[in-house]
Simulated assay, not measured.
Amino acid sequence: MFRLSFLLLATMAGIYAAMMLLGGEDLRAERSVPEPVAVRLPEPTPQPEPTPQPEAAPQPQQAAEPLPQPQQTPEQAPRFPGPALEASPEFAGRAPQADTPAPAASDSPALWVTASRLNMRSAPNGSASVVTGLDGGTRLEPLAPAQDGWVNVRAPGGQTGYVSAQFVSDQPQ
Score class of each variant (00 low, 15 high):
159 Q>H: 12
172 P>Q: 06
169 S>Q: 03
122 S>P: 01
40 R>F: 06
101 P>Q: 11
25 E>S: 13
102 A>T: 07
30 E>A: 15
148 D>F: 06
129 S>K: 13
42 P>G: 00
56 A>R: 14
172 P>Y: 03
6 F>N: 09
91 F>A: 15
56 A>K: 13
16 Y>I: 11
126 G>P: 05
21 L>S: 03
69 Q>T: 12
20 M>P: 00
82 G>T: 05
24 G>T: 05
89 P>I: 06
45 T>E: 02
18 A>P: 01
153 V>C: 06
16 Y>S: 15
150 W>R: 09
29 A>V: 05
51 T>Y: 03
62 Q>L: 15
12 M>N: 06
52 P>F: 04
42 P>F: 00
20 M>C: 06
75 E>R: 13
49 E>M: 00
38 A>V: 11
135 D>M: 09
163 V>S: 01
9 L>N: 02
122 S>M: 10
103 P>T: 05
90 E>G: 07
90 E>V: 09
102 A>V: 08
52 P>V: 05
100 T>P: 02
67 L>F: 09
45 T>N: 00
82 G>M: 08
27 L>K: 10
80 F>S: 10
153 V>E: 07
95 A>G: 03
73 T>C: 02
112 W>C: 08
31 R>H: 10
80 F>Q: 14
70 P>N: 00
98 A>T: 11
78 P>K: 11
170 D>Q: 03
78 P>E: 13
93 G>L: 05
84 A>S: 05
